[in-house]
Nucleic acid binder design. Structure first.
Lengths: 348, 348
DNA sequence: CTGTTAGCGCTTTCAA
DNA sequence: TTGAAAGCGCTAACAG
């Protein structure tokens, strides 16, 4: 009886948010009917005419279910959180795309929490039905606490001994592929810029590199393996160190994309050219890589698929399944050859 | 009386999530006392000993308040959503940083929804206390519906006539600064890669460019102004077109960062060099810019501050203030001169 | 086919 | 200084 009864109900004014009870009143049915109609309860037998009335009333009142009330009642938020250490890293875009592809059709809203997470982890955990914990950096960001909170969670692109299922790609195959590409081009002095040693992706990528080199009976001098964070600055510094070796490497496998960008800058700064003096392969592919100067040869990992599979695992966990296995995406890495790699040149 | 009474309460097992009632029982007080203690109710007069008991019980049971219940009761979620069109654009990292700086101390959790938003906008709106609508692209993503939902919201880096407060930077001053830099270097044939015309940032940046050129009495031939989306591919294509003009421009102001990356590639592909043949200035600064080849001269806009101010406005809106003004961050743009700009060379 | 009812876990008067 | 009680808006038995 608030603003009804006067012909035109001024649809978009909808002052105070309508509750389900208001809709019920307007449609002259019980609230529970409204609930069932709006959620398409398959058990509900209702005559079309009544359903029509309900639907129209809801539309007219611009009714939106109250998420908090629903969550309280059902004990589900229908929201999945994805925690990433850093919004600046372009690879998360591809992972997130895969995540959405799978989560949205399943009825979930996906939201990402950025920042050297862990900070608000507790807060976030309480607001989602499941957590995708992405980003390989920083051991300190151990979500042990979150486990305690009992929130289903899977680690994306990262393996740890936390008893939490993981979704990863075959990092080892990736760097091996990069190394083999360089070897095939005729390189023998190949260096590797690894990830932080506390990141397991770093360890796996290094391993793949070493294996490929061994398989080709190529030496990897100690000074040809350096550690770096996954950003430009660190890739730059690592490369600068690498180029001081003598003889210096004729090719470098960078174990991440941003690091490779830094590496390119360092090579230039040293007065050397890519690929004539130094060949470079980056790890992970993104639009950016194609537009660098020169265009960067990369190993394209199936990041979207990893995102999808991570959601599959998470949904299983959320369903209460206890035997959720780690998944390593089988889709093989793909070498995207661009301008940053070539046969070793004449210069030393 | 569930699992108490047997000496060691096995703290981390905490099977079923503890409710406030359990804590109350364990501390032998009423639930309402627990609520008040845990939220530091200033009105509460309680004897230290009792408070101690409550706190200890909560800790022992590993109690976490139920977010849904609290939200239902208080009608607030303590969560702010930030909607961005695209996680791949590195500038959002800086905006998000500013947003968190302000929102977190105010007690809010910040989560970002990526994707050509609007898709799930309704869903998201119901789950947050306020919405930061970022990203200047795509008119179709009109959040008119969200307004109807009555969710407080502010537009970030974008102005529209929706009656929604906005937080922006001085885009016009930014491109003007870029143009003046090139003019000071001696350039006269300066082109501009604009943003999409339906993005207001694009219009403002173009305007700033034109004004600066006019002020220097420099002509801008029609073919020196091209439109592009804010990504590498589009910047590449736009630049390719620009370089077909004859005489071709000796300098280009790209109105975004990713577009500038594409522009660099296009210049190279045309067999020209930066900055000898073509100078280039990018819009918005990020770590990436410093590591491009050559390092990209950019206009650094106060993105963090824009994020902070956007939150200020949003919080005001959420407080119910109705006179929230648009804010244009006063902090002036800053020219970051790197290697991509130089005096016009000898080549034509 | 439709209505009644009992909470979900919290906050917050109001009363003691 | 503490407790009792009402109810936020919804869902899901259970009854008609």
């Amino acid at each position: 009886m608030t603003d009804r009864g006067d012909g035109a109900p001024a649809p978009s004014v909808a002052s105070a948010r309508a509750r389900m009870r208001d809709v019920a009143q307007a449609a002259r049915v019980d609230q529970s009917i409204v609930s069932r109609v709006l959620r398409n309860d398959p058990h509900l037998k209702i005559r079309p005419e009544t359903r029509e009335r309900v639907l129209r009333a809801a539309a007219e009142l611009n009714y939106r279910p109250n998420a908090a009330a629903r969550s309280l009642r059902t004990a589900r938020t229908m929201m999945i959180g994805m925690v990433v250490p850093d919004l600046a890293n372009v690879v998360y875009e591809r992972i997130a795309r895969g995540v959405s592809e799978r989560a949205v059709p399943a009825g979930y809203v996906v939201m990402v929490a950025a920042g050297s997470a862990g900070m608000q982890l507790g807060e976030i955990a309480g607001r989602v039905d499941g957590l995708l914990f992405g980003g390989a950096t920083d051991e300190a960001t151990a979500p042990g606490e979150v486990e305690d909170d009992g929130v289903p969670m899977v680690l994306v692109n990262r393996r740890e001994r936390w008893g939490v299922p993981t979704a990863t790609v075959d990092d080892q195959a990736g760097t091996a592929l990069a190394a083999r590409h360089l070897i095939a081009l005729g390189h023998t002095r190949i260096a590797h810029i690894g990830g932080p040693h506390n990141a397991d992706t770093g360890r796996r990528r290094l391993l793949g590199f070493r294996r490929a080199m061994e398989a080709a009976s190529l030496e990897v001098p100690e000074e040809f393996v350096v550690e770096a964070r996954y950003d430009e600055e660190s890739g730059y510094a690592a490369t600068a160190r690498l180029l001081e070796a003598s003889p210096r490497p004729s090719a470098i496998v960078a174990s991440n994309l941003l690091g490779a960008v830094g590496a390119m800058a360092a090579v230039s700064a040293a007065g050397l050219r890519i690929p004539q003096d130094v060949s470079l392969v980056g790890f992970h592919d993104a639009a950016l890589a194609a537009y660098l100067n020169p265009p960067l040869t990369t190993v394209r990992m199936p990041l979207e698929e990893m995102g999808r599979r991570a959601v599959d695992g998470l949904l299983a966990l959320m369903r209460g399944e206890s035997d959720v296995d780690d998944v390593e995406v089988r889709e093989p890495p793909e070498l995207v050859v661009r301008g940053s790699t070539a046969a070793p040149g004449a210069s030393s």
